[in-house]
Design a protein around this nucleic acid. Structure first.
Length: 821
RNA sequence: GCCGGGGUGGCGGAAUGGUAGACGCGGCGGACUUAAAAUCCGCUACCUUCACCGGUGUGUGGGUUCGAAUCCCGCCCCCGGCACCA
């Protein structure tokens, strides 16, 4: 504990109750999820954790509220599947192996065991009979099987490509794993290499992945991030003539979104890695070009991608011809042009593109305006807006959008190019030169090439007798027994692929595995998949927006097209929780502000920790953990422990009816509030409503304004509402007040709208919009009566004196505003 | 630079066109206690006032409205994401 402040006494046996009920629930399997159940299904999934070894408060913050929501759905009558598993492959296990000499397998499995124990201490409704651990062969064999299915359907391929390389992790990375030019995991600056690697053809689904209509309720933020990541641009691919070189290739093609600026092209730029660079370079430029290419290759990604960077480049000493006006355009290479986007060649229009403008200024190239900027446009920048076309031969005086259309028509008619769409997203590179992952099921044979491992030879087992060297060299590559294999096609000597799969492959389909986790003839039983998927509600962090959440959508669409399933989207609804911080700062070991849930659970019990996490702020905005804050929840639980064990027989039998109806109204208003707020993940305000109810009941007891029968009703309904939030204390009080086991198999209470209505209202009286008086009135009061009593109020009269009343605005049941001047 | 979220008491937050500050923390006063802690009761936005009354107040400057934390426009600050994508 980090606290030095006073702590409230825990006045009920919290940890004893935790243990008692956790054992009982497990023994009775009350959270077992049956497959054959007539109730409607509800699949509520929380992103499964990486088994790092210790359950952090951040894990609780992710899991406790979603458990509460799943419990709420159970009590609403759904057959709820709320599964849990472990994303067990990945680099930390391997780094630990290199550092401490512990093999990743036992390291990971002991972490899984410990985290499973810690997760159980939360008292969640997880059905542990469905747990999955991705590093076990019974799971990862299906990664291999699916990989081969994707391969057979043309959605997996192997290619030599410039790839992002992390020199510290000694592996390539997916584009999604590069953050600001650095490795997402270790922060080392990444470089580029050219390697033969395996890819998933996610670009095939680029346009369908932009269609979010199948997603019922996803945060806009995630949709925007995915939209930007996929990056669809409409434009024209247009050829420039290079037939004067006498090469086999007669033209170079470029992609532009601004074909309306084609008459403003004064140079062209190729990416340094472009395959035509060598053959287009003039002899006198050879040396300069070669050294520039070499430099670009060595530069880190952060250097190359910086927008501040000067626009360096070298001329090739050659030119291409613009078909539209026959002009000769000088060719350059420059590293601001990316080989992976469009055609890897850019037409330079310095007057209307800021990057081209900077390049032209630096290299003394002409800048020709072809879209007239509005008056007063400063000339030190490119004008990128729309306008009237000039210096564009037959298209002058056209508004530029119209001109673009006309030019595109002309280009297509002459066969110089065509309208097309370009995407920013690249295919998903999944090869990793690491050990602790799923072996890629391919064998390389000198005669047959890359041969897929036949299904009946799966899984390709990850050998457990691996040797870890501090050089980071993959233990698979130096394991002869693993590497040497017979070619499945010709039976000759062959070598296994020693790369493993990105762990995001595991998480791309794990939600399907929960439908039938023990299935051993297929990744899942199709009938059970149909009855449990898609996931109705997914919860987890927004950091997965363009990785896991995009990859799983791709997997779903690919598997649908292979006939494995019949839905389009894996996750119908998505909710992103925020981040929990401590003392106003992000938790970190160096700050010494890391909160360990175990210590708090040991003192206060699981319920207090659960409820505090849900109370400290709106779930989607994250929150700040304070030790004084958790005291408040512990106090509340102490109070309810005392309150609901009182004997209702001590209350008077005859009580004033209006007091009773006040309490009844409060009860029904609370049910409505908790119900609607839980529906929308507003845990903090639903807990506040429950607190208000206990405060009200405590006061009613002290004033003896409640009778035994209503007390019993309030107790019952309160405990039912409490159950999803604080399952242990709710169950214990349910038992202690003589109610039959289990509160968790009961229905969530319903409210009667007629009983929530107020009998008297507080009528707010404003003069010119300022509050002047509050009057108690029956809810049935008529507008005329309101006007009468409002105008009669002395407090109102002091402000209307000497003025003329112009208008009366009446909002029924709420307020009246007197406009007087 | 672009996109998204946000700015409300001493603090976490509530209120999405109609009583600003629910609920909780902290603080202050009281009860209980030899005492302290815990617990219980009361008060607690700020200014003015013994009190009532009154005034001010939701980052900032304008606007719309009978009425704005809430809607619109400009600006400042914080957090997250993307960023030479032609």
């Amino acid at each position: 504990m980090t606290t030095t402040t006073r702590r409230v006494d825990v006045r009920y046996p919290a940890t004893e109750i935790d243990n008692k009920w956790q054992q009982r629930w497990e023994q009775d399997r009350i959270y077992h999820t049956p497959d054959d159940d007539p109730r409607p299904k509800w699949h509520e999934l929380t992103m499964y954790p990486y088994p790092s070894g210790d359950l952090h408060i951040g894990h609780w913050y992710v899991m406790a509220p979603s458990d509460c929501h799943a419990r709420f759905r159970r009590m609403q009558g759904y057959n709820v599947l709320h599964p849990m598993g472990f994303d067990a492959f990945g680099l930390p296990a391997e780094n630990a192996a290199i550092r401490n000499g512990i093999h990743p397998h036992p390291w990971t499995m002991s972490n899984v065991e410990n985290m499973r124990r810690q997760l159980r201490s939360m008292g969640p409704v997880y059905d542990w009979e469905r747990e999955i651990v991705t590093c076990l062969p019974e799971y990862y064999r299906w990664n291999q099987w699916l990989f081969l299915q994707f391969y057979k359907h043309g959605l997996v391929y192997r290619d030599e490509a410039p790839v992002v390389w992390c020199p510290s992790c000694n592996t390539v990375l997916a584009n999604e794993q590069v953050v600001n030019g650095a490795c997402e995991r270790c922060d080392a600056l990444v470089t580029r290499r050219s390697l033969k690697q395996w890819f998933f053809r996610i670009t095939k689904y680029a346009d369908e992945l932009l269609d979010f209509s199948g997603l019922l309720d996803w945060p806009d933020k995630i949709l925007t991030m995915q939209r930007n990541w996929i990056g669809r641009s409409e434009g024209v691919e247009i050829a420039f003539d290079i037939s004067h070189f006498g090469l086999e290739t007669k033209e170079i093609r470029t992609f532009t979104t601004r074909i309306d600026t084609i008459y403003g092209v004064t140079f062209m730029v190729l990416a340094p890695e472009h395959p035509l660079v060598e053959s287009l370079t003039a002899p006198e430029q050879r040396e300069a070009v070669q050294s520039y290419v070499e430099e670009a290759r060595r530069a880190t990604e952060i250097d190359r991608l910086s927008t501040e960077r000067e626009k360096t480049g070298v001329p090739l000493g050659a030119y291409a011809v613009n078909h539209l006006n026959g002009e000769r355009i000088p060719l350059y290479i420059a590293d601001y042009v990316l080989t992976t986007y469009g055609t890897g060649i850019v037409m330079g229009v310095p007057a209307h593109d800021q990057r081209d403008y900077e390049f032209a200024r630096k290299h003394g190239l002409p800048i020709r305006t072809v879209i007239a900027p509005p008056e007063g446009q400063e000339p030190a920048r490119a004008f990128t807006g729309e306008g009237v076309m000039v210096n564009s031969a037959p298209f002058n005086d056209l508004p530029s959008p119209e001109g673009a259309d006309a030019i595109a028509d002309l280009v297509e008619e002459n066969g110089w190019g065509r309208r097309t769409v370009s995407h920013r997203i690249r295919d998903w590179l999944v090869s990793r030169q690491r050990y602790w992952g799923t072996p890629i099921p391919f064998v390389y044979c000198d005669d047959c090439g890359a041969v897929p491992v036949p299904d009946d030879q799966l899984p390709v087992l990850l050998p457990l007798d691996a040797e870890f060297k501090p050089t980071g060299e993959s233990p698979l590559a130096i394991n002869d027994e693993f590497v040497n294999a017979a070619c499945p096609a010709c039976d000759g000597p062959a070598k296994r692929e020693t790369d493993t799969m990105d762990t995001f492959v595991d998480s791309s389909w794990y939600m399907f595995r929960f439908a039938s986790p023990a299935e051993d003839g297929a990744p899942f039983d199709p009938d059970l998949l149909g009855s449990w998927l898609p996931v109705d509600q997914y919860t987890g962090g927004a950091e997965h927006a363009v990785m896991h959440l995009l990859y799983s959508r791709f997997f779903t669409k690919g598997m649908r097209d292979m006939g494995m399933l019949d839905f389009d989207e894996p996750f119908l609804r998505l909710f992103n929780q925020g981040t929990i911080i401590a003392g106003g700062a992000k938790m970190s070991k160096s700050r010494g502000n890391v909160i360990s849930p175990d210590a708090y659970v040991g003192i206060f019990g699981a319920d207090v920790v659960r409820v505090y996490l849900m109370f400290l702020g709106p779930w989607d905005q994250g929150g700040d953990w304070t030790d004084t804050g958790i005291n408040g929840i512990s106090r509340w639980m102490n109070r309810m422990w005392d309150l609901f064990q009182r004997d209702p027989a001590d209350l008077p039998e005859v009580v004033d009816e209006s007091a009773l109806s006040d309490t009844r109204r409060k009860l029904h208003q609370t049910i409505e509030k908790v119900h609607t707020d839980l529906d929308r993940f507003k845990f903090n305000t639903s807990i506040a409503a429950l607190m208000e109810l206990t405060n009200h009941l405590s006061q009613a007891w002290n004033r003896q304004t409640i009778d035994p029968s209503l007390w019993r009703e309030c107790t019952e309904k309160f405990l039912l509402m409490l159950a999803p939030f604080a399952p242990h204390i709710a169950e214990e009080l349910w038992e202690r007040t003589g109610r039959p086991y289990s509160v968790h198999n009961r229905s969530f209470p319903k409210w009667d709208p007629a009983l929530t209505e107020e009998e008297t209202i507080t009528l707010v009286v404003q003069v010119n919009g300022r509050l002047r008086d509050r009057l108690q009135a029956p809810a049935s009061i008529s507008e005329d009566e309101v006007k009468e009593i409002a105008l009669a109020s002395p407090r109102v009269q002091t402000h209307t004196q000497g003025k003329t009343i112009r208008k009366l605005i009446y909002v029924p049941g709420r307020l009246i505003n007197i406009v007087a001047t």
